[in-house]
Design a protein around this nucleic acid. Structure first.
Lengths: 158, 158
DNA sequence: CCCATCTATATCACCCAGCTATATAGACAG
DNA sequence: CTGTCTATATAGCTGGGTGATATAGATGGG
C-alpha cells in the first residue's frame, strides 16, 4: 500500500512529503483532543513552565526567545506564573538587571498532574482499541519516538 | 495508584500508559514546531475553517458546539472569516433565524496552502535525518496512522 | 388570531494574552 | 562622569475568549 519502497531504488524525494503529511496528521489529530482539556492554561504558559522544568533557572529574555514570544509577553506570562505560585523570580548577583526565572515545587506538581491527565486521556482512547492495535502502536512509537526526538532536538539546537 | 489495569502484573498489554505517554510526547513535540508558524490565524479559526471544508455548510451554533467555543465567540470568528473572504453566510430558507456558514474558494485555497506549508516544514526537519530514519518513520507511520485515525474517529463519533 | 415561550443569532461589557514602542535601571567603555 | 548598550518593565493597542442579554423568527395553546 505504500508507494515508498517497493523494491525500487531509494527515492527520498518521493517519500519525504508523504511521511511529513502523515506525521503532521497524526500530531495534529492527537493534539486537537488533548487541547480540549487545557485547564485554564494557555499553550505558551505550559510550554514555558515545561522549559523551566527541563532547563532550570533562565533569564526572562532567553525564555522569551526560546518560546518564540516577545519579551513583554514573557514578562506578563512570568508574572502570572508567579502570582499562581508556579514560578519564582530572583535577581542575578552578577548582573542587577537580570531576572532569573525558575519553576517552583507547585509548578512541577502541576506539570506532572497535567501529564498524568493527558496520558490518561490518550490511554482512554487506546482502551477502546483491540489489543493488537495497541501492540502495533507501541512498536511504531518505539521506532518513531527516538527519531522524532532527535529530529526536534537537532532543530532546536540550531 | 494510577495503574489502570490492576491485577495483572506481567504484560497485560505492552503498557497502555506507556504507549499513551509516547503518543503524547510525539504529538506535542511536533505540534510545538508547527505552531511556531501560524500566519496570523488562531487555532480555533483554522479548526473551524477545516470543519467547514470537511462538513459543508453548517449552522453557526452547531459549529460553535463542534469546536467547543461559545456561540458569541463563533459569531465573531465567522465575521472575521467573512471579512477576509474565507467563509460566507447565507440564510436558511426553512428557518429565518438560522445562519448557515460555508467555506469559500479562497478559504479552501488558504487551507491547502497552510497544509502545504506545514508538510514542507516537517519535510525540512526530515531532510536532516539519515535516510534509514526516514524509512523507519515511514513504516512506523504506515502502521500508526490508520490506527490513530480509527481511534480518533471512534471518539468523535460518540 | 394572538400571546407566551422557545430558539438562533447578534450585541454588549468585560477579561486575558499577545504585540510594538518606549521608559527605566543597571553595566560598562572611554 | 557620561554616553551607550542591555535587561526588564510599562503603556497602549488588538484579537479572541467569556456570560448576560437583546432581537427576530418559530411554535403551540386558548
Amino acid at each position: 500500500m505504500s508507494d515508498i519502497d517497493g523494491g525500487m531504488d531509494e527515492t527520498p524525494e518521493e517519500g519525504l512529503p508523504e511521511v511529513a503529511a502523515e506525521l503532521n496528521e497524526l500530531a495534529t489529530g492527537l493534539v486537537r483532543h488533548l487541547l480540549s482539556d487545557r485547564q485554564g492554561m494557555s499553550l505558551n504558559t505550559v510550554a514555558a513552565l515545561g522549559r523551566l522544568e527541563r532547563e532550570g533557572p533562565i533569564r526572562l529574555t532567553a525564555l522569551a526567545a526560546a518560546e518564540g514570544i516577545a519579551q513583554p509577553s514573557m514578562t506578563a506570562l512570568v508574572q502570572r506564573l508567579e502570582r499562581q505560585g508556579l514560578a519564582s523570580r530572583s535577581a542575578d548577583p552578577a548582573d542587577g538587571r537580570v531576572c532569573l526565572v525558575a519553576i517552583t515545587g507547585a509548578g512541577r506538581e502541576l506539570l506532572a498532574e497535567r501529564h498524568r491527565a493527558q496520558r490518561a486521556r490518550v490511554a482512554g482512547l487506546l482502551a477502546a482499541l483491540p489489543e493488537q492495535d495497541v501492540q502495533a502502536l507501541s512498536e511504531a512509537m518505539d521506532t518513531a519516538l527516538p527519531i522524532v526526538r532527535r529530529m526536534l532536538r537537532g532543530e532546536s539546537a540550531s
